[in-house]
Design a protein around this nucleic acid. Structure first.
Length: 132
RNA sequence: ACAACAGUUCAUUCUAUCGCCUCGGUUUAAAAGUACCGUGGAGGAAAGUCCGGACAACAUAGAGCACCAUACUUCCUAACGGGAAGGAUUGCGUUGGAUGACUGGCGCAAGACAGAGAGUGCCACAGAAAAUAACCGUUGCGACUCGUCGCAAUAAGGGUGAAAAUGUGAGGUAAGAGCUCACAACGCUUUAUAGUGAUAUAGGGUGGGGGUAAACCUUAUGGGUUGAAAGGCCAAAUAUACCGGAAGCAUCUGUUUACAGAUCAUAGAUGGCUCGUCUAUUUCCGGGGGGUAGGCUGAUUGAACUCGUUAGUGAUAACGUUUCCAGAUAAAUGAUAGAAUUUCCAAUUCGUUGGGAAACAGAAUCCGGCUUAUCGAACUGUUGUUUCU
RNA sequence: UGACCGAUGGUGUAACUGGCAACACGUUUGAUUUUGGUUCAAAAGAGUCCAGGUUCGAGCCCUGGUCGGUCAA
C-alpha cells in the first residue's frame, strides 16, 4: 500500500464542511504555531480523513509566502499522515481536520515537520481516549 | 580598458528519490474510480487596478441642461489618458557674433505645450500704488512768517515686493516720458517661398496696463449602464406569511351585456434633472420574509507565437512559414539530498580553501498599454578619462 | 472581483476661498498645602504619511506610491 500520496479525495473541498470547522461547535487544540480544529463526520467516500491547511492573509499578506508555507505543511503532512490513518482505520471512523498556521515568521521545514508529527500524535491520543 | 547615462534582451542550471494539476492512451462488459505509460504545467512585472478594448446582460425615442474625461502637429492602433516621428518652448553644456539691450550654430534633457485680446474671481505681508498708480523725488507758477506751504505738470531716479506697466542708445523738454527715432525682445495681421501639418525663413503693416485656467470658466472632441460573484444550463429546495400602493365597481363611444377602442389616474422603465416617449392595470408593483446554495458551462486558437521577406525615418503593417504553448477552483506548478554556475566576505604558499548570498515576487475570463518592485548578467549607442599603434 | 474614504504634537480633533499650523486632555516646572489631589501660573513638544509637480507661496490643488479602514456578495 502506497502511503505517501496526496490526492484530491484527501483534501477538504466541501464548502459547508469548511464553514462548520470555522464555527465553535468543533473540538480544538493548539500546538504552537499550529491551531488545529477537527470533527467527526461522514465523508461519503472510502478514505478516512480529509484535511484543510490554512495560512491566513492577515499573517502573510504576500501570496508567494503563503504558497511556500502551505507547500511545506502539505509535504510534512504527506510524509507523516500514516500515524493517524492506522488509528482511524482500526476504529472505522472518518474525520475532517483543519490546521491553521499562526506565525508571522516563516519557520524552517524541519521545525514545521516536527510540529505536524506532534499534532498527529496528539490527535491519536485523543481518539484512543474517546473511543474507550 | 575603465566610469557615467540611455536603450534592448535574459532573469540560475542539472541529476536522483518521493509527490501535485490538466489532457490523451491502455486496463476493466460500460461509466466513475483505481493502476500504469506518455504530453504539457507561473511572470517580466502574473502586482497596483491607473487607462483602453474584447465578451456578456439590460436598455435602445430622443432633445436640452448637468456630470466626467481629453487638449502643439501628423501618423500608428481594435481602442487608449498609450506609442512613433516632427515642431515650438524651457533648462544645461559647448562654441561663435555684438561687447549696450541681446543673439546665432551644434549636442543633450524635460514636460497635463488649447484659450488670460469672451467674462468673473483672487494676488497675504510689505509698499504711495497689485490694475485706469503717485509716498519721497523732479520741474514750473503762486504765497508768505524765507524754508516751508498750496496749485499744476511728470513718471527718469529711490525704496517695497514673487511680480511695478518692454530694454539699450540718441534726440527732445521747464522737468520728463514710446513723446519721437534707431537697434533689440515680444504680440497680432498680411504677402511670398518651403512643408500633409504644427511651423519655419524673408519682406510689409501694426500694437503697447501684469500674473493665475493642476481658480470658476470658454472652445473643440468623446462618453448608455453594469461587470465573469456578468450571463446560460442541470440538480436540489420551496410559501409569496405580513405591510404599503394601484385596482376589481372611473368616464365616454360602438356593438351588446361582455368584449373592443379612446380618455383619466397610478406604478414602472428611459438609473442625475426637465420635457417627451414607451409598458402594465386583475392580479400587478414595491418593501420585507422564507427555502436552496452542489455541479457543468462561460474558460483558454488568440487584435496568439517562431522564423523570414517586403514597405516605412519609425511606431507598425502586409505576405509567407512554423507551433498549439497552464487552465487550477479553500485554488496545482513542490520538497529533500547532491553537483555545477555567478557573485560577496575572510584566509592565502596566489594554486586554492572555508563560510554565506542567488532578487522582486505566484495566474484566477482574456488581450493592449501605463505605473510601481527587483539580486544580478549580456549586448548596443553616446560622452568623458587613460594607455598603445 | 468591484466601489469608496482617511492619514496633522504623546492622545483626540480644528485650520473657510492656497497666505504666521489652532484647541482640549496628557507631560514638565513653579506656586498654594503638613503631604497628595483640586486650583492657579508658565514652558516644552509638529513642520502636516512618503516622493515629485503647479504656484511668488501648498496641510489645502494635481500625479504616483505607502499604510489603515468601510461597503457590495
Amino acid at each position: 500500500m502506497l502511503m505517501f500520496t496526496f490526492q484530491k479525495r484527501e483534501r477538504l473541498c466541501h464548502r459547508k464542511t469548511i464553514q462548520l470547522l470555522f464555527t465553535h461547535e468543533v473540538s480544538k487544540f493548539f500546538v504552537y504555531p499550529l491551531k488545529v480544529a477537527y470533527t467527526k463526520i461522514d465523508l461519503q467516500q472510502a478514505f478516512p480523513i480529509q484535511v484543510l491547511l490554512v495560512v491566513s492573509k492577515r499573517y502573510h499578506p504576500h501570496a508567494a509566502k503563503r504558497n511556500y508555507i502551505k507547500r511545506m505543511m502539505r509535504e510534512a503532512y504527506r510524509k507523516n499522515k500514516h500515524i493517524l490513518i492506522e488509528v482511524l482505520q482500526a476504529h472505522h471512523s472518518q474525520i475532517a481536520l483543519m490546521i491553521n498556521y499562526t506565525e508571522h515568521d516563516i519557520l524552517s521545514y524541519k521545525k514545521i515537520e516536527g510540529k505536524i508529527i506532534l499534532t498527529l500524535q496528539r490527535l491519536c491520543e485523543l481518539y484512543e481516549k474517546n473511543s474507550r
